Amino acid sequence: MSEIKPVFLPERNRFALVDCDKRIGAAHYRDYEGADGVERVFFHTTVDEEYGGQGLASVLVKFALENTIAAGAKIVPVCPYVKAYVAKHKDYDEHLAQPTPAHLEILPRA
């Protein structure tokens, strides 16, 4: 029986979904020191294909966003999935910061 749960891995700059000890998804971010404090730039979200269609990406992103807010950081949605999620969940509006060129500069190059 699998037990899928989200975890925070700050040393890896990501939130992850784990099934027992196996990582099955991740929401990658970089923290940016903005004028008003930390802004967490979410740039890539994945869930392993075999776990698709179960709503796990939304579980992961909700966990990541709630953790970010609790830490007092703003959410900067760059990842298409995170952008779509916050567009559907208006309760995050007050915690958003729009992406700027400075935010994009800190992201890893593909």
Results as ranks from 00 to 15, higher is better:
62 K>M: 08
109 R>E: 15
14 R>K: 12
16 A>P: 04
21 D>N: 14
82 V>N: 02
73 A>S: 15
48 D>I: 01
45 T>C: 01
21 D>I: 13
17 L>W: 00
7 V>F: 07
12 R>L: 14
45 T>W: 01
88 K>T: 03
47 V>D: 00
90 K>A: 15
66 E>T: 10
105 E>N: 12
100 T>M: 12
54 Q>V: 05
53 G>Y: 00
69 I>N: 00
76 V>K: 09
11 E>R: 11
71 A>M: 11
96 L>C: 12
54 Q>L: 14
59 V>T: 11
62 K>F: 05
36 D>H: 11
3 E>K: 13
4 I>F: 10
101 P>I: 08
70 A>G: 07
95 H>L: 02
90 K>P: 08
104 L>W: 06
19 D>V: 03
52 G>D: 05
13 N>A: 09
62 K>A: 13
42 F>D: 01
63 F>R: 03
14 R>L: 07
69 I>Y: 01
96 L>W: 12
14 R>D: 01
56 L>K: 08
93 D>T: 15
22 K>C: 11
57 A>G: 09
74 K>F: 12
46 T>A: 05
16 A>R: 00
46 T>G: 00
81 Y>M: 04
89 H>T: 06
83 K>L: 11
59 V>W: 05
91 D>L: 03
97 A>E: 15
22 K>F: 13
64 A>D: 02
56 L>W: 10
99 P>G: 10
68 T>E: 05
47 V>Y: 03
100 T>H: 12
31 D>K: 00
104 L>N: 13
32 Y>A: 06
67 N>T: 13
7 V>A: 12
16 A>L: 05
81 Y>T: 06
49 E>C: 00
50 E>K: 11
103 H>V: 12
33 E>I: 09
57 A>C: 03
86 V>D: 06
9 L>R: 13
63 F>V: 08
72 G>I: 03
37 G>R: 09
24 I>N: 09
53 G>H: 04
59 V>S: 10
7 V>R: 10
62 K>P: 00
10 P>I: 06
64 A>K: 02
73 A>Y: 05
19 D>H: 07
42 F>T: 00
30 R>M: 12
27 A>F: 01
17 L>G: 05
16 A>Q: 04
5 K>T: 13
86 V>Y: 10
20 C>T: 15
30 R>G: 05
69 I>Q: 02
37 G>A: 08
29 Y>W: 04
107 L>Y: 08
44 H>W: 04
61 V>P: 06
21 D>R: 10
72 G>M: 04
100 T>N: 11
110 A>K: 14
39 E>Q: 15
45 T>H: 01
26 A>F: 02
98 Q>K: 15
103 H>G: 05
28 H>D: 14
18 V>S: 01
87 A>E: 15
85 Y>S: 11
37 G>D: 11
32 Y>Q: 02
22 K>N: 14
96 L>K: 10
55 G>N: 09
26 A>N: 09
110 A>R: 14
80 P>W: 06
6 P>I: 07
40 R>M: 10
